[in-house]
Each structure stands twice: as structure tokens, then as C-alpha cells.
């Protein structure tokens, strides 16, 4: 047994105190600002209590942003998990140890890139005239123009593709590592029962990995909230408001268009409440 020591207190307390201060001060202050009517251009302000929140619910652009955010969350999380599980299983099935290592290295590269870099790389690639990603389309159609980022119907998906390019490939590596940690006996048993390859995965391996896969999805849901960099660089919320997520709208209300810091903060506070409640509930369920 360890002797009683002052270590836990001296090691833990300062850090926890600093984390508490660094996180609670801005959080509480965000709520304070949201209850006022501060603007960037004017130094004075007064308390308006909940009128910012009331205004939000009659703001059609805000409601649009909520909808875009929900769409973004669903599209990116689902596509990431599908790509990750698909490629992870494929690597597990057909690649030998050396090839696996090689693919793992390749698949980690996109997620390491700064979001700004990834956004630029694909913004160039999507260019209707000179882009490398639109080149096959130009080639096949004999020079027709396809501009995915400027069409309301495709813009969100074009940006989501970049997100999946970064996270789906990375998660494929993790799915492979998870598959490798499984004991071989159940797989052997299923094989002896003449189960097909896909059946083994659908009914044996993936159900065995249910808990870690759900945690993985949880991580992706949190990371998908950070869509701002991609959208800011690639579309700025456009065309129109087709890709304007909540953080993009809050940013443009607070800093680009009107400088309504309090209004933007009210939006941020709503986002914060929604995400903290949702994720706390999800986390407790995952842990249970």
C-alpha cells in the first residue's frame, strides 16, 4: 500500500482550479453578455434579459442555421461511420500486416492537416474550371461546368465530403485496430459454420465492438460541432444561407455583418446548453 501523501492534492488542485477558472469564466460571461445588448461599435450597454433569445426564435435565418447544423451533424457522422467501418473491415480482410501499416499511415494524414489547409486543398480541387476534382466531369461531358460549392443543393455535401475525408479515413484505422484486438475464436467458429465473410462481420465482429464503435461515434458527434473552419474557408455559409451552420451565423452576426455581440452570444449560449445536455446524457448512457 502507498503511504498517505500530499501528492494528489498538490498535483490535482492547481490544475483543476485553473481549468475551472478558464472554463467557467467565459461560460458564465457568455450568459451575462447574452442578457445584455452589447455591440462591437458602441461602448455602452444595458440589460435586456431574455429579449435576445425571444428574437432568435422569430429569426428565420437562425432557424435555418439550426436546420443546417442538424443536417451537417447527421450527414458527417453517418458518412464517417460508414466509411470507417467499410474501409476498416476491408483492410482487415484483404490486407497483410505490411499493407495494413502502409494504409494506416496514409489514412492518418488527412486528419492531421489543419482544417484550414484541408478546406483550401478541396476548394482548389472543386474549382469549376481548373479544379482537379471537377476535371473528370469536364472530361466526360466535354467541358461542361460543374461548381459544387456554388449550388445550394450540393454545397453542404461538398463541404461534408472534406470532413469525411479527414475523419472517415482516420476512423477506418481505429476500426481496424479494434478488429485486431478481437479474440480469433468466435471468427473461427463462424467460419466453421460456413458463414460468409460479410456475415461474420455483420453478426459477429461488429456486434462485439458495439461499445467502442458507439464511443467512436460519440467522439465524431463532438468533433462535427467544429465545422466552422471548413465552412468559413470554403463557402462562408453560402450560397445564400445553404451552408450557414450555427457557429457560422453567430460569427457573422457578431463580427462580419452587424457586430451584435450579445445576439451572437445568445446563440452560442443556446448551442452550449443544447450540446452540454445532449452529450452529458449520451455519455452517461455510453458509460452505463
Amino acid at each position: 500500500m502507498r503511504r498517505r501523501s500530499s501528492l494528489p492534492v498538490t498535483f490535482l488542485m492547481p490544475t483543476l482550479a485553473i481549468l475551472l477558472v478558464l472554463s467557467m469564466v467565459p461560460t458564465l460571461y457568455a450568459i451575462v453578455i447574452a442578457l445584455q445588448n452589447r455591440e462591437l461599435s458602441a461602448p455602452g450597454y444595458s440589460w435586456v434579459w431574455f429579449s435576445n433569445f425571444a428574437d432568435l426564435f422569430s429569426d428565420r435565418r437562425f432557424l435555418n442555421a439550426v436546420w443546417v447544423s442538424v443536417k451537417w451533424e447527421i450527414v458527417t457522422v453517418v458518412a464517417t461511420m460508414v466509411v470507417a467501418i467499410g474501409l476498416g473491415v476491408l483492410m482487415f480482410e484483404v490486407a497483410g500486416p505490411r499493407l495494413r501499416n502502409f494504409y494506416c499511415l496514409l489514412f492518418i494524414i488527412p486528419v492531421l492537416l489543419p482544417r484550414v489547409s484541408a478546406a483550401f486543398v478541396w476548394k482548389f480541387a472543386y474549382h469549376p474550371l481548373y479544379g482537379i476534382a471537377t476535371y473528370p466531369y469536364r472530361l466526360v461531358t466535354g467541358g461542361l461546368i460543374f461548381d459544387p460549392l456554388s449550388k445550394p443543393g450540393t454545397a453542404l455535401f461538398a463541404v461534408a465530403l472534406v470532413d469525411v475525408w479527414q475523419w472517415g479515413l482516420f476512423f477506418a484505422v481505429i476500426v481496424l485496430k479494434l478488429l485486431e484486438t478481437l479474440p480469433p475464436q468466435p471468427i473461427e467458429a463462424a467460419r466453421l459454420d460456413h458463414a460468409k465473410r460479410w456475415q461474420i462481420h455483420a453478426y459477429v465482429t461488429l456486434p462485439m465492438l458495439k461499445a467502442p464503435l458507439i464511443s467512436l461515434m460519440f467522439v465524431k458527434m463532438i468533433e462535427s460541432l467544429r465545422s466552422f473552419d471548413l465552412i468559413y474557408v470554403m463557402t462562408r455559409g453560402g450560397p445564400g444561407v445553404a451552408t450557414e451552420t450555427l457557429d457560422m451565423y453567430a460569427f457573422s452576426q457578431g463580427f462580419i455583418e452587424s457586430g451584435k455581440v450579445s445576439y451572437a452570444s445568445a446563440m452560442a449560449v443556446l448551442m452550449m446548453i443544447a450540446t452540454v445536455i445532449t452529450f452529458t446524457m449520451l455519455w452517461k448512457r455510453v458509460q452505463a
Partner: peptide
């Protein structure tokens, strides 16, 4: 609880932290 608190810092939307910090 400590582990959950540390993880929950990741739930905070960056805008929600950045706006008040800018004012501060």
C-alpha cells in the same frame, strides 16, 4: 467526475468560449 469534467470541456462550442473571451 474529474474525468468527465475534463472531457466535457470539449463539448463547449468554440464560439461560446471565444465571444466572451474577446470581450474580456
Amino acid at each position: 467526475d474529474i474525468q468527465f469534467f475534463v472531457l466535457s470541456l470539449r463539448f463547449l462550442p468554440p464560439v461560446a468560449v471565444a465571444i466572451p473571451l474577446m470581450v474580456i
